[in-house]
Every structure is written in structure tokens, then in C-alpha cells.
Nucleic acid binder design. Sequence first.
DNA 1: CGTAGGGTTGAGGTTAATCAAGTATGGTGG
DNA 2: CCACCATACTTGATTAACCTCAACCCTACG
Lengths: 235, 235
Amino acid sequence: MPSSKQSTKEMEKSLAGFAMFRDLGNPELTGLATIAVRQEVPKGQNILVEGDEAQGFYLVERGRVKVYKVSPDGKEHILHIIEAGFSFAEACIFFEQGICPASADAIEDSQLIFFPRGRFMEELKRSITLAMRMLGSMAGWVRLMAEEVAGLSLSTVEGRLVSYLVVLANRSQTPFSDGVTVTLDVEKGVLAARLGTIPETLSRTLKKLQDKDLLKVDRSHITILDSRGLLDMLQ
Amino acid sequence: MPSSKQSTKEMEKSLAGFAMFRDLGNPELTGLATIAVRQEVPKGQNILVEGDEAQGFYLVERGRVKVYKVSPDGKEHILHIIEAGFSFAEACIFFEQGICPASADAIEDSQLIFFPRGRFMEELKRSITLAMRMLGSMAGWVRLMAEEVAGLSLSTVEGRLVSYLVVLANRSQTPFSDGVTVTLDVEKGVLAARLGTIPETLSRTLKKLQDKDLLKVDRSHITILDSRGLLDMLQ
DNA sequence: CGTAGGGTTGAGGTTAATCAAGTATGGTGG
DNA sequence: CCACCATACTTGATTAACCTCAACCCTACG
């Protein structure tokens, strides 16, 4: 994928749109734009395999990516769903052998920006600002994972589901209050894996909450009927 | 806590002993030694509280520290046990408001080395090498947490216990094979919290494995009788 | 129509938490 | 040295959560 002056300029503009690189100086952005590679990934396609050597890390420009681990018995647990505008697999590039700790698939037709490991490292060593951004990004992952562990080990499926709905509501700028409708952003099967459970249990849990008049389910649209009651379940 | 030339020199030597700072140049080490502060923490004492503002991060020079989260209903889940020679709470210092994502207590009489957030940031900005070390350390945390999430969500208590025993054996340079005895490095109650369960269940699980002649338990000494059988449980 | 995929429902079994009551174990003071 | 106590640990009975397997429904789509 050769990058003409034109496309480098264009890439530079794209990169500047990512929170991770916002307000980054010109030399840094240009350097990054030069080594960045665009990648089209159709829905369902695999991007990284756990245990394989990571060749670099990614930004999601368009679409969505799931990052997951598979248990020995084949069950998959989704660690994160990476939205457009965010990055993933940063951690891989800092390991000695660059072994991926998780797998990744596109769950929508996606456009990614790829940074090759070696050349990105060069850029990092050249710019302390970039290194600090990277540190901030990694710290964010650490926090997220800590929440994840806590959520998994300390909650029931019911609790995790409610907590997910709260996050979902906040993400779409809607408050988590009575009458508000949130739309699931993933298939229910994917959501189940995200919550560390299976579709059957998710279905039953939604039904139970519906029977208690805490919410109403219509396909992927969930209407909050009793936000107080729902939030009480997190206790 | 004033640092005379003598103690700075001594601190520099101590810091050089940490994997994180090994082979770091002289200017970096001296800078770090100047801002580092030693702290004695008796067993059981709290070090960090989840949600509080983090003032910096820590190295464990002697003793051991548990990093944990508490659920709304008061149950505690241990994320990590930090051994002497390792660091914790690095991630905290990169958050805007410096909010701790987890709590930490000493589980033994411990000696810590504390780096104040602001001054450490200065050192970081000054040295790209230090920043790269920090990135490596954070990446390590990300991987560990990913394993943690996978382990929690994909395994039974039995599986998590076996997996812990394997780690324990490897850590003490002993292979995980028949006849080998590993010694639990923490109280069983702490181990239970580490495995995301409660002492009762841990006790029963050990008994079950003992009844199946897979291992033998004597206090905190666990002898592997059938390593194949145990490893098969991870499938 | 007929089929496929996502989703739901039901019966049954397993795992592990809770509550309650025991049994070591390791120090401490007499 | 021993009785005593606190703490860690174990055991039992009960209950709740949730996974498995199997069947079924529904909607989109050729």
C-alpha cells in the first residue's frame, strides 16, 4: 500500500481526528501518517488471533471490532467492543515476542488504520508526547479491565446487564431515566458473550426484568420503565 | 522525608534492583532516586482506596500487597498480589483526575517506595527510555488483566484453582509434575478472594480434588499426585 | 414457500453461594 | 507447661443462579 504525498496528507488529517492523536504536533502526525496503512475488513473477518505474533496495532476508522478470548472448551468471551474512533492491540506491540493476548474480529464492515510494530516503535522513541499519549491510552485499558474483572466476579448476569444498559444510555447522550429507550448496538448473542453468559440466559434475564415491569423489550429496543428499580439491582 | 546525599545514593542502588528500572542510565536513576520516598506499611494496613485520588505509584521493596475491588454488597475480589520487586498503581497517575480504579492493602509487613505523581511525570517527560519502560510495564498489566478476565469468565473454581497451582509451581522454578509439592503463598481466605470465590468453596474444591487422588493437601502444602489429570481439567 | 439465523422457551442438572455449626492452630497469659 | 482465646479453616444442609440440551418461533429473504 504505497502512500503518495496526497494520501499521506489525507491520512494525517484522518489521524488528527482520533482522540489519541488530537493536538499532536505536525512532525509527529506526519511521521505516523507515513507508516500508517489503511485496511478494509468485511463483517465477520478475523483480524488477530490470540497467541499469534502481533505485527502492530490498530485504529478503528469506521465499523466495529470485537476483542475476545476463547476458552479451551470453545466458548468465547468478549473483552471489548471497539467503536470507531478508538484503538486496540496497543499492548501487544510492547511484549518481547509480540504475542497477542486476545483475538479480534470485525463485527461490521470496517475500515482500520494499521501501525506496523517496528516503525511505530521508532516514532515512539522519537516523540515523548506520543509516548505519553500511548501511556494514557494503556492506562485507560488497565482501568477498563479492572472494571471488567470486578463486574464479572462481583455481579450476577442481571446486574451486568443493567450496568451495560446504563453505559449504553450514557453513550448515546440519553439519561438513564424512565421512558427512555436505548437500542442494543450488537446482536443479542454478541451481547450475551460480552456479559459472560449465553443467549438463553440473556433472553430469560430480559424476560424476568420485563415481568417485573422494570423495562420493556421490543427487538433490540429496550425501554426503561423503572430506572430506580433497575439501579437498585446493582447494589 | 528529606533525602541526604547518602540516602539518595542508597535509594539509587535500590531502584536499580527493580526489573522496571534495570540498566537505566545514570541521569534517570538519580532523578528517580531524588523523588522516591520510602514507606513502611504494617500488615493489614490500607494503602489506596478505590475512587480516591492517587498521589503517585509504588514499588514493593519488601513484603506483599493485595490490589482489590469491593462490590456494592461488600465482597472483595483480589485483582493481583504484588510481590517484592514489582510495582503497582502505575495506571492511576495517567488519569486526568488520578482516580484509583482499585484499592490496595499490605498483606505482610512491607516496605514500599513511593513516587509522587507530579514529579514522576516530570521525570517521564525528561526520559524517553523511562517512558518506554513504563509502557512495557503497563502492557504487562493489560495482558495480565486480559488473562484474568478470561480465567474468571471461562472457568470453574476448580479450573481456576488448578491454573493457579500451575502458576505457583512455575514461579518457584519447580515443574508442574507428579510428586512436586507447592506451598500456598497466601492464606486460603486470600486465595479464595483471588480466585473469585469464598473460603468454603475453596475448601470443598480442594477436598474434591483430594478425593479424586489428584493432589494431597497438608496445611498450605499441596502435593501434585496426578498432573495429567489436573491439567485435563483446564480443557 | 421454504429455509436459515437469530431469538425464545422448557426441563433438568450442576455449580457455587449462604447460613450455620463445627474443628484445628497458633499465640498469650497464668 | 497448659488452659484459653482468636483466627483460620472445614463441613453440612439448603437455596439460587445459570448452563446444557432440545425443541420451537419468528422474520427476512431468495
